[in-house]
Amino acid sequence: MLKKLYRTIRLFPKRGREPYVSFYKILNFYPYNIMLYEQALLHKSSSIKLKDGRWINNERLEFLGDAILDAIVADIVFKEFEYKKEGFLTNMRSKIVQRETLNKLALNLGLDRLIKSSAKTGNHKTHMYGNALEALIGAIYLDQGYRIAKKFVHERLIVEHLNIETVAQQEVNFKSRLIEWSQKNKIPVEFRLIESFTDDNNNPIFYTAVDIYDFESGTGRGYSKKESQQRAAEEALDKINMDKEFLKEILILKEKESELPALEESPEENPSTDFTTNNETEKA
């Protein structure tokens, strides 16, 4: 209580000044640690080098905000839809936290006017706004705690800018979600058509698999390629979210893959030979 009062007193001279006013318009409260919020809107293309040599941007806050947002939305939909089953709740959370929704919410809040970025390609900007919103939620959590972060998500995002009943009726684009996960984690995903045929009523049937590295991670059937891909992607996402051993194997493969370039770039000569040659040159 005393700590909160002390913080409030310290904020008095800063109210009415920038950037506090800009953040207040978005948050509906004044930040305590303004640097966290400025970092949340600092794209990696405009990273800042600190005196200790570290480079900072919003990627770490985005990582934190992503996890906090998942927890908050799960909390909200669990209480909002009291009698719905797990599958419905999972789908609802996916619809709210998907990149397309977060991008729109970020634009509605006006984050695009505050983001600092030197990225020029449209590709970066596709995810920039949603990523910044996640980073902002991470900053709110660190600065104000879970309760205020949840209040921000519920009141400023869901109540003001989303009709939760309309969202419930929308379909989730599982393929887009899987590709988004793939790009964010730099893990290869491939959709592979296994077979296509016609059923007894002469309807076309497509059977698709999703490969993550060399693992067949999901399969799906449908009356179109798109439908079969959606079902395969849904199965793959369920496996990623539910099967901890599977995810662990994927992350191990990613780690091994990241080590390959370092091995390939190492000199062909034996390091011990180089060392001997250098010693001989020094003596000469």
Rank of each mutant, 00 (worst) to 15 (best):
L2M: 15
K3F: 05
Y6N: 12
I9Y: 14
L11T: 04
F12L: 11
P19G: 07
Y20F: 11
K25W: 09
L42S: 00
S46D: 04
K49F: 04
L50Y: 02
R54I: 00
N58Q: 10
E59H: 01
L69S: 12
D70L: 06
V73T: 08
D75T: 11
E80I: 09
E82G: 08
Y83C: 14
K84I: 13
G87E: 14
K95A: 04
Q98F: 08
K104G: 03
L105E: 05
R113H: 06
S118Q: 06
N123R: 15
G130T: 08
G130I: 03
A135C: 03
L136A: 00
L136P: 00
I140K: 02
D143H: 14
G145S: 11
G145H: 12
E155L: 13
I158Y: 07
E165Q: 15
E165N: 15
T166Q: 09
Q169R: 12
V172H: 05
I179C: 13
W181F: 05
S182H: 08
K184L: 15
V189Y: 05
E190R: 10
E195T: 09
D199L: 09
N202S: 06
P204N: 09
F206R: 01
D214K: 03
S217V: 00
G220D: 12
S228I: 08
N241S: 15
M242H: 12
L247C: 02
E249I: 04
I250C: 01
P261A: 04
L263W: 02
E264Y: 13
P271F: 13
T273Q: 07
T276N: 13
